[in-house]
Design a binder for these strands. Structure first.
Lengths: 333, 333
DNA sequence: CTGAAAGCGCTTACAG
DNA sequence: CTGAAAGCGCTTACAG
C-alpha cells in the first residue's frame, strides 16, 4: 500500500459532508464565487477537520500549473559561513508568501548547476534564484534560460538582480573614520582587484568622500597573508593612524600584526572593515564593520519571484555600519 | 497563456515519433519490459531531443506517488556559520540520488517548524529531515508524525538519527595531548553543561583515556567570557601546560588571554579544541581541533531517506582531528 | 446554489 | 511488439 493511499482525499471529504467534490473544493480553497450555503460550508469544514484532510499540492499544481515553489541554486553559499544568510532570507520570504524553497548547492560546478536547475524546472518551480558567494558577473546554466529568474549577489544583462550597495558601503567606511577626525595616515589593506565588484565599488565609495588614502597595503583577502603584509609594512617604520580593511578576515590578520608590533587598537591605530561577520564582534577590541546584507539579499530576491515582480532591474540593498570599539576619536589640537 | 502550455508534452513527442503515448513513456523512462522496436525507440528519442522534451515531474509524481524530493527543516543552521555544511551535505546526497531538497529555516520557532513541515508534506515529500544547530534531544513538529523522518544532529526515541561521535571526539582530543607527552597541568576550558550532549560525551571520552585533568576553567562557550575566565585564572598564578577548549570560540578567547599574559602557544601552553571551524586555521598559531562532521551528517541523513533505509538506528559519525601547530611535544627528562 | 464532466501530463496494467 | 483506456487528486467552466 503506497503512502498516498493512506491520505484522505477531497472526494472523501465531499462524500462525508454530503456535497459534490466541486463544492468541497470551493469551500476548502476559500473561493467564494459560488456562494455555497453556510450549512454546506460548515459540513465540509467539519468533515475536513475530522478526517484530517490535507490537499495534495502536487495534484493541485498539475491542474493550476503553479507550484508555489522557488528554486535556489547556489555556488557555495552554505559553506561560506555567513553567506548562508542568503538561504535563510530566501527561505523566510518564501514561507511568508506560502512558497517553499528548493535548494541545491553546486560547489560552482557548471554541470551540477545545470542538472540541479533542470531538476527544479522539471518539478515546475515557479521561479529560480541563482546566488553567488561573492558579488560577480553570472553566467546562467542553459536550463535556466527562459525561466523566471532573479540573480542574488551577482548580475547579468537583462536579468533582474539583487546586489549589495558596495558604493555606499565604501563611503560609509570612510565616513566613519572621517567623522572620528581621521584625515591622515589612513591605509587601505587588501590587494587591488579591479575585476572584483566589491573592490571597485568600495574604493570608488571611499574616494567619493574626499578622503585621501596615504597608501595601500596589498595582500590577498585572507588572515595569513594580511598578517604577513601588515607585519612587513609596520617593520618598514611607518605607523598608520587608521586601516580600512577590505574584509573582516584581513582585519583579523591586521589585528595580529598590530598586536605583535605592540600597537594598540584603537589608541594607536583605528580599524574599520567590511562584512560584519561574527568575527567582527569576537575580536578584541570589537571591530567596526560595514555589514554585507545577505539575509536581505535572499529575502528580497525570493519575494520578487513570489510576487512575480520580475522586471530586469538592479536592486541595490543598503550596507549598514556596525559601529564598535575599533575606531578612536582623533583629538585635534 | 500559462507557462506550462509552452512546454512540450509526452503526447507531442509520441505524435511526432508516430507511436503511442505508452510507447513513448516506456522508452523515455527507460523501462524496457515491453521490448519496443529499436527503430521506434530511436524515433522517440529523436523526437524528444528535437522538441526539447522534459517530463513534467509533478504529473509523474501524481501518478507514481513518489516525488524524489526530501524536505529539510532546520532550526538555524544556515545562520550558524559552519553548520551550513549540513545543508550542503544533504543537498549533495539528494542530487546524487536524483532527488531535490526542500529547505526551510525556522529560527527554532515551533509554529514555523510545523507550518514548514506541513508545506513539505502537502507537496508529497518522500521524507523529511529535521536538523539541529547543536546536538540535542528533538521534539518533532506534529505535522512530521507518521512521515518518514531522520533526525540530523539531534535525537529522539524510535526515530532514526545521525549524530557526531562526541565520545570518540573527547578521546581523540585527550589522546592528541597525551601522545605529545602531556600528563600534568591539563585544564578543561568551558562551563560544565550536564544537559548538553557534547559536554557529556566529550568529558566522558577524555576521562576514558585515563588523562587526569588538573582542573576546569568554567565559562560560557563564547570568546568574550572565555577570555575573561582564562585571564582571571592566569592571574591567580597558575600556569597550565595545556588547555582543552570545549569549542573553537572558547579557544579564541583563551588565545587572547594567553597572549595578554605573555604566554606562548604552544611553547608554554598547548591548546586543543573542538569544532574545527574556519577560525581554527586562522588563529596564530593554527589551532588543533576535532572536527564536527556536519557535511557527513547531512549527507548520510539524506542518503538514508533517498534509499529508504529508515530503521530507527543511531548513526554515529566519526569526528577526526585536524592537527595543527598549537600542540607542542613535551620533552621528558 | 449544486452536480456531472472534462482535463492537467503522466504511467501502467490489459487486450490484441 | 503496439494501442486504447483508466486513473493519480485536484480545479473549473458549464448546465441545470
Amino acid at each position: 500500500m503506497s503512502r498516498s493511499s493512506h491520505r484522505v482525499t477531497l472526494a472523501q471529504v465531499a462524500r462525508q459532508a454530503g456535497v459534490s467534490r466541486a463544492a468541497a473544493s470551493f469551500v476548502l480553497s476559500g473561493r467564494d464565487e459560488m456562494r455555497i450555503s453556510a450549512t454546506a460550508r460548515d459540513r465540509v469544514l467539519a468533515a475536513a477537520a475530522e478526517l484530517g484532510y490535507r490537499p495534495n499540492l502536487t495534484a493541485r499544481s498539475l491542474r493550476t500549473s503553479v507550484t508555489h515553489t522557488i528554486g535556489l541554486i547556489s555556488d557555495t553559499i552554505a559553506t561560506e559561513p555567513f553567506a548562508g544568510r542568503i538561504v535563510r532570507g530566501a527561505s523566510a520570504a518564501a514561507l511568508h508568501h506560502g512558497h517553499l524553497l528548493f535548494l541545491a548547492e553546486t560547489g560552482g560546478d557548471p554541470g551540477t548547476e545545470d542538472r540541479a536547475a533542470r531538476e527544479m524546472v522539471d518539478r515546475q518551480a515557479d521561479g529560480l534564484l541563482y546566488a553567488a558567494m561573492f558579488t560577480r558577473p553570472a553566467t546562467l546554466p542553459p536550463s535556466m534560460h527562459g525561466q523566471p529568474v532573479v540573480l542574488v549577489n551577482c548580475y547579468a544583462d537583462g536579468v533582474p538582480c539583487v546586489i549589495p550597495d558596495e558604493l555606499i558601503a565604501g563611503r560609509t567606511a570612510a565616513s566613519a573614520l572621517m567623522e572620528a577626525g581621521h584625515r591622515d595616515g589612513v591605509y587601505l589593506v587588501g590587494e587591488p582587484a579591479p575585476d572584483v565588484f566589491a573592490w571597485r565599488e568600495r574604493t570608488a565609495g571611499i574616494a567619493a568622500t574626499g578622503l585621501d588614502l596615504a597608501g595601500t597595503v596589498p595582500c590577498s583577502w585572507w588572515p595569513e597573508p594580511a598578517f604577513a603584509a601588515v607585519r612587513d609594512f609596520l617593520s618598514s617604520g611607518t605607523v598608520p593612524r587608521a586601516l580600512i580593511c577590505l574584509n573582516d578576515r584581513i582585519a583579523l590578520g591586521a589585528y595580529q600584526a598590530l598586536a605583535e608590533a605592540g600597537l594598540r587598537i584603537p589608541g594607536d591605530v583605528s580599524v574599520v572593515s567590511f562584512d560584519d561577520s561574527e568575527l567582527a564582534s569576537w575580536l578584541r577590541p570589537a571591530l567596526s564593520s560595514v555589514a554585507l546584507p545577505h539575509y536581505e539579499l535572499g529575502f528580497l530576491a525570493a519575494e520578487l519571484v513570489a510576487t512575480s515582480a520580475l522586471t530586469p532591474e538592479i536592486h541595490r540593498v543598503p550596507m549598514p555600519l556596525s559601529p564598535r570599539a575599533s575606531i578612536a576619536k582623533v583629538i585635534s589640537l
